[in-house]
Simulated assay, not measured.
Amino acid sequence: MSRAVPQVVTRSRLAVAVATVAILAGCGALPSAPEPSRACAAGFEAFERDTLYFGRAIPAGGQVSDAQWTAFLDAVVTPAFPKGLTVIDAAGQWRGASGSVMRESSKLVVLLHPRSSRDDTAIAGIIGTYRQRFGQEAVLQERQSVCVRF
């Protein structure tokens, strides 16, 4: 009989552990885009919102000027997203690879678009071009699935 009690306790613990894993497994997987019929209300479409954070301080010295930013926006970003975008002026800070905190003026570009590999490639190209052209360590990309109505 002394052996039966530990087996019951072990089975109970196992059942609790299995239930916990099953519950937590459901928390880890979120859909990459809402399905219009399930997640978006009537009249809305499932889109992605990508926000790109462009620091204007140039690590080698100086800053991306207004003229340089406008030229980049006109030549690189606008052709990739000709239907529209939003640019926001911001002040930001981040800790770079050197470990020091960098404070700099920034530009945020908000892109709303249906999810597609073409747009993913275009965004990667925008980020790569900015990093190379202005010697940037990084450009932050934030993505959220959203429902939009025009």
Rank of each mutant, 00 (worst) to 15 (best):
G84Q: 02
L73Y: 10
G99L: 09
V64W: 13
F72H: 06
Q68L: 01
L108D: 02
L85T: 08
R118H: 02
G92W: 03
S105G: 03
I58E: 00
S100N: 06
T70A: 04
P114W: 05
P59T: 10
R95L: 03
V101A: 13
D66Q: 02
Y53S: 07
T86F: 14
S98C: 09
Y53I: 04
P59K: 13
D89E: 09
F72E: 05
S106P: 15
D74T: 13
R95E: 09
Y53C: 13
K107F: 14
V64H: 15
S105E: 15
A90P: 13
D89G: 10
P114H: 15
A57C: 11
V109C: 04
A71H: 12
G62P: 15
L85S: 00
P82H: 08
D120H: 06
A75E: 11
V76E: 08
A97S: 07
W69H: 09
T78S: 15
G55S: 12
S65E: 05
G99Q: 03
A60R: 12
W94M: 05
S100V: 05
H113I: 15
A60V: 03
R115T: 00
F54E: 06
S116C: 01
V110K: 08
S65L: 11
R56E: 01
R56Y: 01
D119K: 01
R103T: 02
K83C: 11
L73K: 01
A67W: 02
A60G: 02
S105N: 11
Q93A: 09
S65M: 07
S117P: 13
V110F: 03
G92I: 02
I58P: 04
H113Q: 01
S106N: 12
L52C: 14
S98K: 10
H113E: 06
L111Y: 09
L85M: 06
S100F: 15
I58R: 10
Q68V: 00
R56L: 03
V87G: 10
R56D: 00
G99Y: 14
V76G: 10
P59Y: 15
A67L: 05
R118V: 03
R115Q: 03
S98L: 14
L52Q: 12
P82S: 07
R115N: 01
V76P: 10
R118T: 01
E104Q: 07
A60E: 08
E104R: 02
I88S: 04
A80Q: 11
G96W: 07
V87W: 00
S100A: 14
